[in-house]
Design a protein around this nucleic acid. Structure first.
Lengths: 204, 204, 204, 204
DNA sequence: TATGAATGAGAATTCATTCAT
DNA sequence: TATGAATGAATTCTCATTCAT
């Protein structure tokens, strides 16, 4: 039993080391050498726990996406629940704070996982699709109860995701933001998406 | 004179071959070997025109961004000009059609150029920043004349860019869309961004 | 402990293989391929021990010069020591025998190390300068005690070195000499340098 | 006829350019590119006059050796001739001045021609052998008439050549010497070789 | 389990030489 | 004769992975 624990710990240690290295250097620049040095293990030991470079990166990517996932809650329309907008805001804030707290996650999701190969692309797209589906369902509900304007929920969902991703990325690239800044940014994204740019009574 | 033309043609042919290869395989997967086979030239000939893999990719990225750039016009508020919204729509439609027409451009911009190295990242970010600045200026003008709601123009600009990028990407990944589909998608993005999701008279 | 020994052995084996190859083919003609075939190791193994072609050649050159160096003793004027002439003879004989015993050393020093690059040139010149300085000091002492004629010790030292080098080279190029032949040659060089060509009572 | 002259001129110009490049960079470092740029001709033109890199280097080496050769006169024992020692001195002085005047010659003979390949080695050795034979003959004559001590003329000849070569090389490496310096060095080499190091009446 | 020496396929790049114009 | 674009064999070096201890 203890051995199992020890084993799992080592596995985790290697994973953390790899995550750090991949986040700092990117997939192709990072070498197994960098990872084993960071994890302070021997070359062969690495292959005892992970079958290769591609494999450990996939594990990291999946774990990272799961962590993000755990911070996204479906919108509840229960009478006791907070307003949908507040629920969306809370989701966005949790994910943003996660990315800020662990810069490696942001690096891997927004920079390092891109352009590696078809499989990584697939994993990422599947995640975004799942998130988009969640959002699209919420949008559809909103439309049904007349809270939201009519729109194509799929397109709208991806539009929102893109909007949030790009702003997050820019804020993160700009450096560590203060909690106030984060709140302000989130409010702004939400407002822009909810109300759009046109003044009410706009003509179009 | 003719020689110069022939030389430039060959340079172009190599560039096109490389563009295709990079789009299909990504930067790291692609080898000089793949490129020269596609271009049907000898190994040494490649180095006669480009000093290396990184160099030709940079050339492709820059040319691609320039081509996108040429399809984005600043919004004019002249009395004779189309409505700002129509101008924005026209911009989006031109870029979208460009990406559809040359699938390689889309692949390189949205997938292959990402995560290569700091320099490519820099180039891309500079492009998006320039585009965002253009947008932010237009948004500020719109706010000044009371056409648009008050917002943080920087954040709003990146929000729009992210929204458009993500939707484009998904549409392109889904396969070749019909012109009608394209128009519908563009209308949808524009509408969502202009009016937001909330029904007028929304409470929030 | 044993591993260290094994590792050092392999390092030595690679060095010997490279020495042979360089001696036979010269620096530029030799390829890493030739060396690894001779050493019967894989390509990567070579780079595990030496960082490149230039590096291993430098190692060989330095080791070779050190070996020659170890066979050259400073001339002692102690009362119990052999006559200076005998000491010089002993030095020359040791170095000559070293070159005869390991033909590769002679090839590398007299042929292969020449004209490679500025660094190799520098290394060789430094060695000859050191040897010349040793000789010049001995010559100066000889002049001081009236044993030797007055001369410019620097020029005389290089003259002796050149004389010995050239005769060694020719003897080695001519094929393996017998011990008698070696002794005769050494006697001849020493005599020529000590007494010169002119008959005593020469006029000049 | 004129064409032939023009052709020969161009051939000479290419040769001079190559000589400069080889002297400055060495055989392997020098590229055909360097040579044609120095000669200001096109790539193909080079091959019109010389069949390759190796060929033009051989031509340069041979011409250089011929030039040195022209400055070495056989020792005459005619009654009207200067003393043999003066004739030897004159030979040495002419060659030395040639090397000083055209630094490229010295570089090629003493540094750049070494270690290239068996053929260049052969050419050089043939030259030194010829010179040694000349010297050996003179030494034999000197011994016959009782002017010189008994010695092995072959060994003695190479000893002298080595002595002169090494001192020349060191003087040239040290930088441009004044005519006085040159004379002093030549006197010193001659004296050392003629009289040796031992004081007369030395015991050995 | 742990180690780390060994492996070798693969990649980028160079440059002497050729040849069509 | 002159040109210079094109060629491709050859070479060095890297690094993910294996395997004997």
């Amino acid at each position: 039993m203890e051995e199992k624990v020890a084993k799992r710990e080592r596995e985790g240690a290697i994973l953390r080391a790899a995550k750090k290295i991949f986040a700092e250097q990117g997939y192709h620049e990072a070498s197994i050498d960098d990872i084993i040095k960071e994890a302070d293990i021997a070359r062969g030991t690495f292959y005892l726990y992970y079958s290769g470079k591609r494999t450990i990166f996939a594990a990291i990517l999946n774990l990272t996406l799961e962590e993000v996932n755990r911070n996204i809650a479906a919108i509840s329309l229960d009478s006791g629940a907070p307003s949908p907008v507040d629920q969306v805001k809370a989701n966005v804030r949790r994910v943003f704070n996660l990315l800020i707290a662990d810069r490696h996650i942001a690096d891997i999701l927004f920079v390092r996982a891109l352009g590696i190969d078809a499989e990584a692309m697939e994993t990422l797209n599947a995640f975004y699709k799942k998130t988009a589906d969640l959002l699209a369902r919420a949008l559809t509900q909103g439309m049904t109860i007349g809270l939201l304007n009519k729109c194509d929920p799929q397109i709208a969902a991806y539009s929102i995701i893109g909007s949030v991703k790009e702003v997050f990325l820019q804020v993160i690239l700009a450096g560590e933001p203060s909690p106030q800044k984060i709140d302000a940014v989130i409010d702004e994204i939400i407002r822009v998406n909810l109300y759009g740019f046109y003044t009410r009574g706009g003509l179009i």
